[in-house]
Lab assay of single mutants.
Amino acid sequence: MSIQHFRVALIPFFAAFCLPVFAHPETLVKVKDAEDQLGARVGYIELDLNSGKILESFRPEERFPMMSTFKVLLCGAVLSRVDAGQEQLGRRIHYSQNDLVEYSPVTEKHLTDGMTVRELCSAAITMSDNTAANLLLTTIGGPKELTAFLHNMGDHVTRLDRWEPELNEAIPNDERDTTMPAAMATTLRKLLTGELLTLASRQQLIDWMEADKVAGPLLRSALPAGWFIADKSGAGERGSRGIIAALGPDGKPSRIVVIYTTGSQATMDERNRQIAEIGASLIKHW
């Protein structure tokens, strides 16, 4: 067993022997301040990774656009098919120029040779490549099948209805392509620590998230040296922004954090800054 596999296998073990965790309302004060600064709703939840206990939450059962955070769930569904012998990570998928959609920095470079399922998941999570996500959605049967996968996990809230990039439209009061912070946090925890996926697939999923290259201005910008984070960000229309993450000190994750916002007129930089400040408060009061 590799060191990384050992780390993920012992996530519940280490967490069980940690000192009790206590909620700190100071972080919620910052979440509410972010709402004021952005002029928009902000949803927040913080779960203990081992027990699933909610440590703090704000608007945990209000719907927010998922945006690209759905790509972690998508690759979880792909990995479940791999575990069941219905898919192979090494299978190569070929596609054409007509398949390319807006923001496809990886797939646009491989029109000639195609990409493997493993490479597509890596591109979808680490670079948020939209064509990679659409190609992977095709392998599982489309958005409705991802929703069905989530329902089978016990998540009857999260739903995907459309493809990239239309799913980022974020129309107010439109339930399409949305989740709730509580539902997303619980589902992410199941994917990373539950028995739904094999140990190898859980490790692969967290490795992809740990290698995320496009979430630097968010929670990662607030992390002290030595902290662990595996995350996936999302951005959408109407001032929408979000991030889902597993993080913790001492090089291992111990909490799940989900943050979503929508309806702001603020710039992307300002949305990023507010999420980073929430992260800084979380870490300060850990």
Rank of each mutant, 00 (worst) to 15 (best):
T69Y: 02
D177M: 00
V42Q: 00
M184C: 05
I54N: 15
A211Y: 13
E237K: 12
D99A: 08
E62Y: 06
F58W: 14
T179F: 03
I259T: 05
Q204R: 08
Q265M: 10
E210N: 12
A266H: 10
N50S: 12
P224A: 08
T179E: 01
G141F: 05
K252H: 07
P105T: 15
E210P: 01
K53D: 12
A185F: 01
A185L: 01
Q37L: 10
L55A: 09
G226D: 11
R241A: 04
M209N: 00
A185C: 10
A222W: 07
L219D: 04
N130I: 02
L160V: 06
E119Y: 04
T198Q: 09
A123W: 03
V101Y: 10
T193M: 12
G154M: 13
A222K: 11
A40H: 04
M66H: 07
I140Q: 13
L282D: 02
R273L: 10
D33F: 08
Y44L: 06
R189E: 12
G216E: 08
M127S: 12
D113A: 08
L49Y: 13
A230N: 00
A133S: 08
E164N: 02
L160C: 06
M66R: 00
L282M: 13
S104Y: 04
R189W: 06
P172I: 06
M127T: 13
M184A: 07
L247E: 03
V29L: 12
E145Q: 10
I229M: 13
Q203Y: 05
K232N: 00
P165W: 04
E46S: 14
A245H: 00
K109C: 11
D83G: 06
L282F: 06
M268K: 14
E175S: 13
L47N: 03
I244T: 15
H285V: 08
T267Q: 12
V157W: 12
E169K: 10
S80W: 15
I275C: 05
S96T: 09
Q204N: 15
D155H: 02
E108M: 15
L100D: 02
M268I: 15
L167C: 13
E210V: 12
N98L: 08
L100N: 04
L223H: 03
G236R: 02
N168H: 02
N134V: 03
L74T: 12
A133G: 11
A77N: 09
I259R: 01
P165C: 07
R159H: 07
N152K: 15
G248S: 04
A280E: 12
G263L: 13
L111G: 11
P143L: 05
A182M: 09
L197W: 02
G226H: 08
K30C: 11
S68F: 02
D177L: 01
Y260R: 00
V117T: 08
S80N: 15
T261I: 13
T138A: 12
R202M: 11
A245E: 00
V157C: 08
R118C: 14
Y103C: 05
D36G: 14
